[in-house]
């Protein structure tokens, strides 16, 4: 089930700071001689600069600049830890020349039930939209990978834990219709805590809805690549994420049906190291292969060619 959003950015890179280079140059000159007296940077700038500058790997503690991390597609240069990244980052990494066209961006979440937990769902949606500048937990885009068309539906964990609700279900459905119409291979990148509880059974039924659409995609013989990234759980795993013609995953991503905490509470034992990680799933026969983010574009190219040829 969807975790609360305060866990969201755990281990994800801080916004890339565009001012970082300038800041460094200025500082080398002004290192020994203060050229001008007084604090000259405005408060706003001061807040921005340090945020985007450095990044510490949550896995190995390696510190590098955000620019360096971005150039390395948000994979730690030292230990290969894959940072959690956004749909924007994936589109940017995968598509040729960073060029893509977003589809169905006009769909937004609706408080169908008038659901209130610690705050009303309608308020939660508005706050999350303002905080993340996203409209929902999934975005769909088309573009080219080494010259071949690809349509990608990608989740954003920052939006209520990447939770599966009506909007995600509908976007997947429309993306599949688009893929069938244009005979374009379909890729879905999962990164989700599971179903969106605030949409109750509507959320549950998205599992059936998307699986029905995938069966139409299958009849049209259009390839479906499911990329599972950290984390993928609950209703997402128990539906479209596990139904790819190819199920592939990023290294060391946590993937499962029930979350580790719930399993631990149920069996009252500690879980073995590596449990529910990609490598564990590969060993148990549920993944076709694991793909390093740095090689993702090449792999996708290979897959598209193999299905086409």
């Amino acid at each position: 089930m969807a975790e609360k959003e305060d866990k969201i950015n755990e281990g994800s890179p801080i916004d890339s700071g565009t001012n970082s280079n300038n800041a460094q140059q200025d500082s080398t000159e002004g290192w020994f001689h203060r050229l001008r007296k007084g604090i000259l940077t405005s408060t706003a700038e001061k807040r921005d600069v340090p945020e985007g500058l450095w990044n510490k790997c949550p896995e190995c503690g390696y510190i590098c600049t955000t620019t360096e991390l971005k150039e390395n597609v948000y994979v730690c240069p030292k230990c290969n830890f894959h940072h959690r990244i956004s749909s924007e980052d994936y589109f940017d990494i995968i598509f040729d020349d960073h060029q893509f066209k977003e589809l169905f961006g006009e769909l937004t979440s609706k408080d169908i039930l008038g659901f209130t937990d610690t705050k009303p769902y309608s308020k939660r949606i508005k706050e999350t939209e303002a905080k993340t500048h996203l409209k929902d937990s999934m975005r769909v885009a088309t573009g080219k990978v080494k010259g071949n068309d690809l349509i990608i539906a990608c989740m954003d964990f920052a939006f209520i834990g990447g939770s599966l609700g009506s909007v995600m279900g509908e976007k997947i459905a429309r993306a599949i219709d688009h893929a069938i119409k244009h005979k374009t291979p379909f890729m879905l990148i999962s990164k989700s805590g599971g179903a969106r509880m605030m949409e109750s059974a509507f959320s549950l039924m998205q599992m059936a809805k998307t699986s029905g659409k995938l069966s139409q995609l299958s009849d049209a013989q259009v390839p479906y690549i499911s990329l599972l990234t950290d984390p993928t759980f609950g209703g997402v795993t128990a539906s479209f994420a596990m139904l790819g013609d190819l199920n592939i995953a990023e290294p060391a991503a946590l993937i499962g049906f029930a979350g580790p905490r719930i399993i631990k509470e149920t069996i009252r034992k500690d879980l073995p190291k590596g449990f529910q990680q990609s490598e564990f799933l590969l060993d148990h026969g549920f993944l076709d292969f694991i793909v390093d983010r740095k090689e993702l574009r090449d792999k996708l190219d290979q897959i598209i060619i193999l299905f086409k040829g």
Partner: peptide, 20 residues
């Protein structure tokens, strides 16, 4: 069932496959 063996044997995949 949210058990360890259930995960090893692919609880998510089994449910997904049935729905499909």
């Amino acid at each position: 069932y949210p058990g360890m063996e259930a995960e090893e044997r692919g609880q998510g995949e089994a449910i997904a496959r049935n729905i499909y």
